[in-house]
Design a protein around this nucleic acid. Structure first.
Lengths: 211, 211
DNA sequence: TTTTGACCGACCGACTGCCTGTCGGTTTAA
DNA sequence: TTAAACCGACAGGCAGTCGGTCGGTCAAAA
């Protein structure tokens, strides 16, 4: 008995299954067979909807980034929230976004997922930096910050945080992590030309989020 | 006619072949068959010397890192060179090191090489940062720099430079690249607490190296 | 209004070719 | 003689292909 569905519905079913399986077993560790069995379709159907396995990964990342950047953008646009607090909220939105993105992130750091990880990193660096830079510019107008290079400045901060705190790039004990947080806030203040201690709220965010 | 060689010699032959092929066709794009044909050995021989394909990548990276960090370390230890110039030289040593590492780097940014790339990134960040931090500490003693967090500071600089300038993480035109260099130097000065303009030499290095 | 049939795209699954890793056996040098 | 370097057939699994099937839709005919 053949079940016919609208292309987009089927596509999403496949992406949902792939999402879960990639998270559990990694990209390389998940075979197209695993996916089509989970969805309950035939090989040909899968390749009717996706050009290749990598095409699926790209579609998946597109879904993530829309959710991720969308919610970040919403918060960034809310000018009623003070600048520093808004930055904190934007960053938080990245890490505990949709229901599943927590789980995704937990598994994305496995070595098998290097390709996927790289692609997500690209989305984050190039997607979040402009959003945060907008807020920074407000902060500059309010004389909270002072830098001739707000974009490059944020790019550096985002890149570093994303590499060192979110990846397994640098192996750290809990203590090392804490001291790195302190250094990070200190360095961010210097980069942004902010008054010393004015970003300490950020510290609390990282602390609570980690639990 | 069977040719028997010392294990280490054979191992290096295999690594040399893998090195070249990975560079040309990427890690995933290179089959073990390609490698053993190039070396002129049988499948069993290859797996006699290496546990798996990933084992080969790890051995390859080990070779790189010994060369890379070794030469960097040598330069860093040479206290007769002024601090700022020594930093420049260490960084240069990374990019135009052995004969082949130029070629390696050219090909390492292909999407197929994500895993290898990630592993190299890890080696660089965790290997170069302590070396450069040593020099920075000298600079602090000489009151060229001033920061309570020299290690984390350099980690940030190294991570950013390696991600944005060496990867294809951020697509850039030549002009964007130049402006990012200026911003980078400016930001590095702020992070290190250096006098404004004191790191401008670094700029020249990046400029000449790019040609 | 109802029926017919052409059409399109969702769907199927056997098949191809390639790939990694294994294993029992063979050769060589010490 | 013995250890280790070497061999190549083989197993199992994988991504992607392809010719063909089936079901929903829509317009024209009854």
């Amino acid at each position: 008995m053949r079940i016919v569905k609208a292309a987009e519905e089927r596509r999403n079913e496949i992406l949902d299954a792939a999402d879960e399986l990639f998270g559990q077993k990694g990209f390389d560790g998940t075979s197209t067979n695993d996916i089509l069995l989970k969805v309950g379709i035939a090989r040909g159907t899968l390749y009717h909807h996706f050009k290749s396995k990598e095409d699926m990964i790209d579609a998946l990342i597109e879904r993530y980034s829309v959710r991720l950047l969308g919610s970040a953008q919403d918060i960034a646009a809310n000018k009623s929230i003070p600048v520093v607090e808004r930055i904190v909220r934007v960053v938080m939105a990245l890490n505990l976004n949709g229901r599943s993105s927590m789980e995704i992130m937990e598994h994305i750091h496995k070595p098998q997922n290097a390709l996927m990880h790289q692609k997500i990193q690209r989305v984050i660096i190039n997607g979040i930096t402009p959003i945060l830079t907008g807020i920074i510019r407000e902060g500059i107008e309010q004389e909270l910050f002072s830098t001739p290079f707000p974009y490059e400045c944020m790019e550096m901060i985002v890149t570093y945080a994303n590499t060192v705190f979110d990846d397994d790039m640098v192996p750290m004990t809990d203590e090392e992590r804490t001291s790195r947080m302190q250094a990070f806030v200190f360095n961010a203040e210097r980069l942004l030309g902010a008054e010393s201690g004015s970003l300490m709220h950020v510290m609390q965010m990282f602390g609570s989020q980690q639990a």
